[in-house]
């Protein structure tokens, strides 16, 4: 059964400009987007195109300047935090930077248990932590250690495990593999794609890299300077991109691959 998990309806977001002037920075302009249940949606765009802003709006961490954000057809923008409990359990996030996405002073056990405690998920904590670690292919002994003792790829696994804790239906990944080197990146991508199947997740995968999106996503939305310039099934967009900007992004794939080496 497919319907919408998350929707943006005519959403704009402006930030006050850093200086003294009255100008505002428009991060997103009139964006409408439908995150269909069970689908993996890729959001692609260059740096500064508004991808992270979009993620924060989808998570109701920020309020839109105009437009509405819906979760299962109910408006969540502008709602009080106490009305968002179901939403908070259902939509979780994995961030880009493996260094800053885990509190370095916390034991992995606590990092994974925190969402359960905060959301009042009633489970056997130790048991749940163990199964979460297992689902991201880390040994149970990892629970006793601190975040700084892990490599970038391992940290990203832990961040994924943390997001899976409350059994969300939607997982948002904001450049979740961009900071990893190529071999680790492939592992994490494979892990994500098998988790999506195993846990029936709806995935919103944000990236600047078209190649990664093709690997993982059913549909794609192309973001350019705060507006969505093209949406469609990944296969269609890759076969026949309509917009010049999308064509540019696609053309950039081999060049980036060749030029970057290990990244």
């Amino acid at each position: 059964m497919s319907g919408s998990e998350l929707q943006l309806v005519g959403v704009s977001k402006t930030y006050p400009s850093p200086g003294w002037g009255r100008d505002e920075v428009a991060a997103l302009t009139d964006v409408s987007l439908d995150v269909v249940r069970g689908q993996s949606l890729g959001i692609v765009g260059e740096s500064g195109s508004g991808k992270s802003t979009l993620a924060r709006l989808l998570l109701a961490l920020e309020q839109p300047s105009a437009g509405r954000v819906l979760f299962r057809d109910e408006q969540i923008s502008g709602r009080a935090e106490r009305d968002l409990r179901l939403f908070r359990r259902s939509v979780q996030i994995v961030f880009q930077d493996p260094m800053s996405s885990l509190d370095p002073r916390m034991k992995i056990h606590d990092i994974l248990a925190e969402p359960l405690r905060a959301l009042g998920v009633e489970v056997d904590e130790a048991e749940r932590v163990r199964s979460l670690l297992e689902s991201v292919e880390l040994p149970p002994s990892a629970a006793k250690r601190c975040a700084f003792q892990f490599s970038g790829g391992q940290r990203q696994r832990i961040a994924i495990a943390r997001a899976l804790g409350p059994s969300p239906s939607v997982l948002i990944a904001d450049e979740a593999v961009s900071a990893l080197d190529v071999s680790v990146r492939a592992q994490i991508l494979n892990l994500l794609s098998s988790l999506v199947t195993d846990f029936d997740l709806t995935l919103v995968f944000i990236s600047h890299d078209m190649a990664v999106i093709r690997h993982l996503c059913d549909a794609v939305a192309v973001l350019y300077r705060g507006s969505i310039v093209e949406t469609g099934l990944t296969s269609d967009v890759f076969r026949s991109p309509r917009e010049a900007y999308t064509q540019e992004l696609l053309a950039a794939i081999p060049r980036i691959r060749a030029g970057r080496g290990r990244d």
Binding site: R56, R88, I93, F95, S100, S101, D103, P115, A118, R162
Partner: peptide, 25 residues
């Protein structure tokens, strides 16, 4: 840090975040 955003996303309120992350940090 992104772990603070993550904590907000799993429903921690500012006061709890100060206690659990900011003060120890």
């Amino acid at each position: 840090a992104e772990y603070v955003l993550a904590a907000l996303a799993y429903g921690r309120r500012p006061f709890a975040i100060v206690r659990k992350h900011v003060l120890p940090g």
